[in-house]
Nucleic acid binder design. Structure first.
Lengths: 210, 210
DNA sequence: GATGATAGCCTATCGCTGATAGGTCATTAG
DNA sequence: CTAATGACCTATCAGCGATAGGCTATCATC
C-alpha cells in the first residue's frame, strides 16, 4: 500500500470516479469535461474508466440518477405533514425549480438533452426501461398528479393535460434561468413567485365547482 | 463551366453551404452533422468551409438567425389587424410554440444551448452585442410587452416579471415537446390550449382593476 | 508456499472530430 | 501579357471517445 491511488478496490474506484466527475462538472460544466480529465484527476489512465463504466455518458447518467433521487427525497421531506393540495403544488414547484438551479448540470442531462433521447422502443411506454431523465420526469410528474386530482377532480384526460401544463411552466423557468444566466431577468424569487401564482390561477379556473 | 461545383462565386458558395447544412440538420439533427458531411454534400473539401465561415458553429448560428427572422416575420404577419391584447398574446404564444416545433434544431441552438452562452461582457446588457439566441429572445419578448402593458398597466417592474413568466411558460412546453418527443404527452393541440389558458388565467389575475 | 484464475490497470492505437498551414490554379484588373 | 486576388486543394494537427491486448497484484485453491 505504498501508492495510495493504485490497485483500489473496484467499488471504491468507481465511487472515486463519480466524486471526481461531479466535482469537475461543477467546476467547468458537464459539457466541458473529458474522460481524460477525469482519469487524470483520479490518477488512473483514461481507458481504465471503461473498466468501471460502459461509456462516458454512463458516468454522467449515474450522477444524474443520484441527483434525482435527491430531488425525490426533497419532495418527500417537504411534503410530509402538508395536506392542503394548493400548498403541496406550491412546494413541488418551488422545490423543482430550486433543485434545477442548484444542480444545473444534472438538470441539463435529464431534461435538456442535446439529442433526442431514444427511438420509440415500443408503442406502450414503460417507466422501467426508459432513460433516467424520462424516469425522473415521470416521478416528478407523479407527485404532481395527486394534488391536481384533489383540486380539479378525477377526469383522467384533464388531469394529464393540467399536470403537463404545470410541468411545462416550472420547467420553462428552470431551463431558461439555467441556459440564459446573463439575460436581464427580474429578481429570481419574484419570478418564482410569479410562476407559482400562474399555476394557482390556472388551477383555480380548472377547479371542480360542482 | 464544365464542372458545375467548382470555382463558384463566393456568395453563391456560401449560400449553397447554408442550404445543404439546413437540409442535413433536418435529416439527422443539428448535433449529428459534421463539417465533412456538409463539405461532401456541397462538393468541396472540408477545409474550404472555413473560407466562408469562421467555425462550424458559425454556420449553425447563421441558420439560427435566419430562422428567427422568420419567426419575427410570422409574428408581424399574424398580428396585423389584431388589436385585442388578449388575442395578441394568444397569437404570440401559439406562433412561438409552433415555430419551435417546426424548427426544433434552430430552437435548440437559440434557447437550449449546451454550454452557457457567454461570460458577462459588461454590467449593462446590450441587444446588439449579445449572442443571436439572446437577441431572438429579447425580440420575442419585446412583442409580448405591449399587450401585457395594455392588460396589466404600466408598472415597469411588474410588466417585466409577467412577461418573463409567460415566456417561461411557452418555452417550457416547446422545450419539453422537443427534447422529450417520446414522453406520453396529451394531445398536442390540447396541451397548447391549456398553456394559453394558463397565461390568460394569470393575466386576468394581474389585470389592472382601477 | 506454489499455482491458476480474476480483475484492475497499463500502453498503443483506432476512427472520428474541428481546425490550420501552405501550395495550386482559375479568374480578373491593369 | 502580367500580376494580384481568392477559391480551392492536400496534408496535417490536437483532441475526443472507445477498443485491443499485455502486465501484474490479489486471492482461492491445492
Amino acid at each position: 500500500m505504498n501508492e495510495p491511488t493504485r490497485r483500489a478496490r473496484s467499488g471504491e474506484r468507481r465511487e472515486q470516479i463519480l466524486e471526481v466527475a461531479l466535482r469537475l462538472f461543477g467546476e467547468r460544466g458537464a459539457g466541458n469535461v473529458t474522460t481524460r480529465q477525469i482519469a487524470l484527476a483520479v490518477g488512473i489512465s483514461q481507458p481504465s474508466l471503461y473498466a468501471h463504466f460502459a461509456s462516458a455518458d454512463a458516468i454522467a447518467e449515474e450522477l444524474c440518477v443520484r441527483a434525482f433521487d435527491a430531488l425525490h427525497a426533497r419532495f418527500a421531506a417537504k411534503l410530509i405533514d402538508v395536506d392542503d393540495p394548493w400548498q403541496r403544488i406550491d412546494i413541488l414547484g418551488r422545490s423543482y425549480i430550486e433543485f434545477g438551479l442548484e444542480h444545473p448540470d444534472m438538470y441539463r442531462i435529464a431534461f435538456m438533452p442535446t439529442r433526442e433521447t431514444a427511438p420509440p422502443p415500443d408503442v406502450t411506454f414503460d417507466l422501467a426501461t426508459c432513460d433516467p431523465g424520462m424516469a425522473a420526469g415521470l416521478h416528478a410528474f407523479a407527485a404532481l398528479r395527486d394534488p391536481v386530482v384533489r383540486i380539479c377532480g378525477r377526469d383522467d384526460a384533464a388531469i394529464g393535460v393540467i399536470s403537463q401544463a404545470i410541468w411545462a411552466l416550472v420547467h420553462g423557468l428552470t431551463a431558461l434561468l439555467i441556459s440564459k444566466p446573463y439575460f436581464p431577468w427580474a429578481e429570481r424569487e419574484t419570478l418564482i413567485e410569479a410562476v407559482l401564482a400562474m399555476a394557482r390561477a390556472y388551477l383555480a379556473d380548472q377547479r371542480v365547482t360542482d
